[in-house]
Amino acid sequence: MDHIPADELPEVGKAAYAVCRDAADAGVFVFAGGLDPQQPTIVSPDGLVTDGPFPETKEFIGGLMVVDVPTREEALTWATRIAAACRCPQEVRRLGDGAATESTFR
Rank of each mutant, 00 (worst) to 15 (best):
F54H: 15
E56K: 12
V19P: 00
A26R: 06
P70D: 06
R81E: 03
E73N: 10
A16C: 10
T77V: 08
G47H: 08
F60P: 03
L35V: 11
A26Q: 01
D25C: 10
I82W: 03
E73M: 10
I42V: 14
I42E: 03
V49F: 09
T50E: 11
L95I: 09
Q38N: 14
G13K: 11
G63E: 03
R93E: 07
D68M: 05
A32L: 07
V12M: 04
E91V: 15
P37G: 05
D68K: 12
L76T: 05
D36N: 13
C88W: 04
G47N: 10
V66E: 04
E91K: 12
S44Q: 15
T71N: 03
T80V: 07
C86A: 15
T71C: 03
E11H: 10
K58A: 13
D51N: 10
A23D: 00
I42G: 00
V66R: 01
I42F: 00
L64K: 01
L76V: 06
A23G: 05
P53R: 02
A18P: 03
D46G: 07
E59T: 07
A16V: 11
P55I: 06
V92K: 01
E91Q: 15
E74T: 12
P89G: 07
E11G: 12
D97W: 12
T77G: 12
G52A: 08
T80N: 13
V30M: 13
G47R: 10
V69G: 00
A16I: 09
T50Q: 10
A23V: 04
C20D: 14
G62L: 01
K58D: 07
D97K: 12
I42N: 02
A15V: 06
P89F: 08
P40F: 09
G33K: 03
V30G: 10
L95P: 01
R87W: 03
G27E: 06
F60H: 13
G33L: 02
C86K: 12
W78S: 00
P70M: 03
T80A: 13
P53L: 08
